[in-house]
């Protein structure tokens, strides 16, 4: 049977709006990277501004802040990546042991609620509860005789507050994914193990963990592509000049340099640097994910 005589032009037509919008608002900024090689003046535009070669790059490499920002970014995001696997995995294993269905469902419902709230809302909540004077966290610690801690204003605390609050927002979401993978394990494997006299711990070790190994490796691999994304929206809503030393990351620095101080060229140069490294990381992780877990997004 002839499959179809339908012509393809309506398909092209359907794609046209998306192609135009992506050309302007995604490919346009990619072309706009030329700013990194210019002494960019908005009135002169992308083509009219003076070209200055690699001067912007030389300038940013000479900045004393650069090392600190790179370190903060990688340090914070690596902690987040590790915690982002360990915590949800543990919680999903524990949840999987709960037999009371309503209780299990109730816990699930509560833990991923923060995922849907914006960092403005969560940031506002955190600023309030972590306040050294009126915050409920310090009031609670006070019961044990601990002096108020300025969690958001001390460099020794700030990165860890970022990691913990990121877990608060996101661990519920990943827990659900792991839990879905856990329920996909063939129950007859457990039955056979029980017949053979395997304890619950042994069942977890020999059946549950191998059963979700693929998804754990996959999610871990994909998150590696985000090493330079330490969470702009979160940091931006929680940090202040007191904690720039420990909490200023690439994205917040680029924002301040580019859009507040109007140093367009150097800011774009840092952004380009980050985009290129991210591209390499993401491509590599997608390739690895495809190779080892047969994962592909298309």
């Amino acid at each position: 049977m002839k499959r179809s005589t339908l012509s393809n032009w309506p398909l092209h037509l359907l794609l046209l709006p998306a192609v135009i919008l992506l050309l302007v608002y995604c490919y346009g900024p990619m072309f706009g990277i030329v700013i990194a090689f210019q002494k960019f003046i908005p009135a002169k535009g992308f083509l009219g501004s003076d070209w200055i070669g690699f001067d912007n790059f030389r300038y940013i490499l000479s900045l004393s802040d650069m090392r600190e920002i790179m370190w903060n970014t990688v340090y914070i995001s690596v902690m987040k990546i590790i915690a982002g696997v360990v915590v949800p995995l543990t919680v999903s294993l524990l949840l999987n042991e709960i037999r009371h269905r309503l209780f299990k469902r109730g816990v699930q419902t509560l833990i991923y609620l923060p995922h849907f709230l914006s960092w403005v809302i969560l940031g506002g909540i955190l600023v309030d509860i972590l306040s050294p004077s009126t915050g409920i966290v310090n009031a609670f610690l006070g019961l044990f005789g601990i002096n108020p801690v300025y969690f958001l204003g001390e460099n020794s605390w700030f990165p860890y507050v970022l990691v913990i609050s990121d877990i608060w927002k996101e661990f519920g979401f990943s827990t659900i994914i792991y839990l879905a993978a856990l329920t996909g394990i063939n129950p007859s494997l457990y039955e056979a193990a029980v017949m053979d006299g395997a304890s619950r711990i042994k069942q977890i070790w020999h059946i549950t963990l191998p059963g979700i190994r693929t998804i754990v490796v996959l999610l871990m691999t994909l998150s590696l592509g985000n090493v330079l994304n330490a969470g702009f929206e979160q940091v931006f809503n929680l940090y202040s000049p007191q904690v720039y030393d420990s909490g200023d990351i690439i994205d917040t620095y680029v924002y301040r340099m580019g859009l507040i101080s109007a140093q367009y060229g150097p800011a774009t140069a840092i952004g380009l640097f980050k985009s290129v490294i991210s591209l390499v990381l993401i491509s590599t992780t997608y390739y690895l994910a495809y190779k080892f877990a047969k994962y592909r997004i298309f």
Binding site: N8, G28, P29, F31, V254
Partner: peptide, 29 residues
């Protein structure tokens, strides 16, 4: 059936993999 699908698909994928950054986007807007 739709030969150019691969080209369009890559056209979309590139926007996930790479971005111009905040300053160029600001200028384009």
């Amino acid at each position: 059936r739709f030969k150019q699908r691969t080209i369009y698909t890559w056209f979309m994928l590139v926007t996930i993999l790479f971005s111009g950054g905040i300053v160029p986007l600001f200028m384009i807007v």
